[in-house]
């Protein structure tokens, strides 16, 4: 039999942390338990009344609640963080967005987790709470492998701090269809353009092409300081295909993922 604890304050959560597995929207954990995963005790984090509001904008930074449903984050963003919002709007279905959380998406640590690439491209941090207080971890360092994270058993993610973009940012994903599809490849980007049209501060992050979400250092270097002429785009796409290490699985072959990842970058540079 499964036990469910339902703390309603941070203090109650702090006292319970470590005594079971957290459940937020349940859209990963309940599917995993249905497939046979044993979790004798669960701690609900979807009813914490004194947690952070869904979205708070302060000087240059958006603070997103890790425990609010994705649909609440989308409405709270009201057009800010275009890449995060684009990924959130494409996420699952309305029913899923009304329950699923950013915290669950990050902690589940799927290589295809759709909220991660825009957060990595944005150099976002998570605020991790535990019995001993809080610490900040770069989103890029949270997942250590498929399904594995740098979180301790008694820690939880409370907030995601995302610097607001100074230039452009965006997110594209390829799935089997537009709604409800696990990403075959996803790409998020951030860059600015100087007066000559050269790209500055290029950051690219890709999902579903490696055991965790990864940056693309070769492609970033191929774009940095250059205007995206045809030759530059071709070189960046080539470099990107070398940056990633996709695998064959039921959704796509490694070859196809490499091709499509490059196509997404070309599309991003042309929009």
């Amino acid at each position: 039999m499964v036990e469910l604890a339902t703390p309603t304050t941070i203090e109650e959560l702090r006292a319970l942390a470590g005594s079971g597995r957290l459940i937020a929207g349940g859209t990963d954990i309940l599917v995993q338990m249905r497939d046979g995963r044993d979790e004798p005790s669960l701690i609900d984090v979807s009813n914490i009344a004194d947690g952070a509001p869904a979205v708070v904008i302060t000087a240059g930074v958006a603070e997103l609640s890790a425990m609010a449903p994705i649909s609440a984050i989308v409405s709270g963003l009201a057009g800010r963080l275009p890449a995060v919002a684009a990924s959130a709007r494409l996420f699952g279905s309305l029913q899923i967005r009304n329950r699923a959380t950013f915290g669950g998406n990050l902690a589940n640590a799927s290589p295809a987790a759709d909220m991660v690439p825009p957060l990595v491209a944005a150099a976002a941090h998570v605020v991790v709470e535990g019995p001993g207080g809080s610490r900040q971890v770069p989103v890029a360092e949270l997942a250590t492998g498929p399904g594995r994270t740098a979180l301790g058993p008694d820690e939880w993610i409370s907030l995601i701090r995302v610097p607001l973009p100074e230039g452009e940012d965006g997110f594209l994903k390829l799935g089997g269809r537009s709604a409800m599809a696990i990403s075959i490849v996803s790409l998020a980007w951030r860059w600015s353009r100087d007066e000559d049209g050269a790209l500055r501060g290029v950051r690219l992050a890709l999902g579903a092409v490696a055991p965790t979400v990864v940056r693309a250092p070769g492609a970033e270097a191929a774009l940095e300081g250059r205007a995206p002429s045809d030759d530059v785009v071709v070189a960046a796409v080539e470099a990107l295909r070398g940056d990633i290490a996709p695998i064959d699985d039921v959704r796509a072959s490694a070859w196809y993922r490499r091709e499509v990842a490059g196509d997404l970058l070309r599309e991003a540079l042309e929009t």
Partner: peptide, 13 residues
């Protein structure tokens, strides 16, 4: 008022 999948929600939540 919000649609959710009742197969993925626990009563206590």
């Amino acid at each position: 008022g919000d649609p959710v999948c009742s197969c993925l929600v626990l009563v206590g939540q």
